[in-house]
Amino acid sequence: MKSKVNIPPITAVLLSIISVQCGAAIAKGLFPQIGAAATASLRIGLSAVILLIAFRPNPFKLNAKQWKYVTLYGVCLGVMNMIFYMAIARIPVGLGVTLEFVGPLALAIFGSKKAIDFIWVILAAAGIILITPWTGTGLNITGILLALLAGVFWASYIILGGRISKIMNGGDAVAIGMVFATLVILPFGIWGGGLSILTPKLLGLGAALALLSSAIPFTLEMKALKQIPARTFSILMSLEPAMASFAALIFLQEYLTLKECFAVAFVVIASAGSALTAKRAKL
């Protein structure tokens, strides 16, 4: 069944962020049991099944251009998620989310055309700098590099999502893209052995993870990308590190320091400013 719900683009992005962070709490519980690769495979694979049932896309109606972009979109989606899960298996989730955001932030900087956009970018960057644990020992350099690489694919995902949303239905694009994403990461999940020890409980958690971390947010993001510029979308996504901190507080009882509270404030102001600028531009 095709979705008829009309969600404003700014609201869609915010709901997407909340959904992803709720899913992250579930993923944290699956990591020790089946590993990062199997968790990523379970998340993307079940998301593909859910979205195919929900949207029932007809692949035979796609033209060559649509096939090209939906394939690139799906591969990018799969690689991005796999690399990010590999990163947070080595470093804290909050740090991973923060470093991954370097990709969308760079996209926002390079895509800016109005002076006011740089104010929001600077504020978002200040928040990221504050929330990143620059001091301390034991940080895994491989995890840090993987998180930064995931950021590159995140920026690519934003660009591809913006383009594909203009040439085909968003739900169909996400559903078919998820199939290609599954084909990319499933071999890693099988090779890691985590998928061979699944229980009904773990499968249920995987289904919830698929809905919250992939099926719901990616569909919402596709709707948003069809109505707002990639630059505005990127700045709005600066809420990710802040929401990750709030999720840690709610689900893991990890309290924020004063410095981290300032970081959250900067990011929220940047996101709100971006939303106001986008609204004003349409008036």
Rank of each mutant, 00 (worst) to 15 (best):
L209F: 12
T142K: 11
E221C: 05
L186D: 02
I141S: 13
G177T: 07
L209P: 13
A207Y: 04
N169D: 15
M243G: 03
S238H: 04
E240A: 03
A126C: 14
L220N: 09
W191T: 11
S238A: 11
K223T: 09
P200G: 00
T142W: 07
M168G: 11
G171H: 10
G170A: 13
L160I: 12
G161D: 04
A175H: 08
P217E: 00
F218N: 14
F153Q: 04
I164Q: 11
M243E: 03
M243H: 00
P200H: 02
K223E: 06
F246T: 01
P217H: 04
M243V: 13
M243L: 07
M237D: 01
M222K: 07
A215W: 11
G138T: 12
P229V: 01
L139N: 14
A181S: 14
I158M: 08
V121S: 15
L211W: 03
N140Q: 06
G170V: 07
G151M: 02
L239P: 07
L148F: 00
I167T: 00
A207Q: 00
S213N: 04
K201A: 10
G136D: 03
D117I: 08
L130M: 13
G151A: 01
I119K: 14
M178W: 09
G206W: 04
K226S: 14
G162A: 13
I122A: 12
A173P: 12
F233N: 12
S234Y: 01
L186M: 13
P200V: 04
T219H: 10
Y157I: 03
L145F: 15
A248H: 02
L225M: 15
L205K: 09
F246A: 01
L198M: 14
S245W: 01
G204C: 10
I144H: 04
T137D: 10
E221P: 01
F180R: 11
I122C: 04
K166S: 12
A215D: 13
L130I: 05
G151Y: 00
F118V: 01
T232I: 08
I197M: 11
G161N: 06
A230C: 03
A208F: 15
I176P: 05
G204H: 03
P187M: 12
R163E: 15
A244M: 03
I122E: 01
N169R: 15
A242V: 00
T232P: 00
N140V: 01
I159V: 14
L205P: 15
A215F: 14
F246W: 00
S245V: 14
A208G: 09
A155L: 10
A242K: 02
F180P: 09
T182K: 11
L225Y: 09
I129Y: 14
T137Q: 13
P187E: 10
V152A: 05
A208I: 09
T232A: 15
R231Q: 10
L149G: 04
I144L: 08
A224R: 03
P133S: 08
L130E: 06
F118T: 02
G138I: 10
A147R: 02
I144E: 04
F233M: 13
A244C: 09
G193N: 07
M178Q: 13
A247G: 08
F153A: 07
L130N: 05
T232Q: 12
L183G: 12
T199F: 07
L211F: 12
K201P: 00
A155W: 15
L130C: 12
F153L: 09
L198F: 01
I159Q: 10
G151F: 00
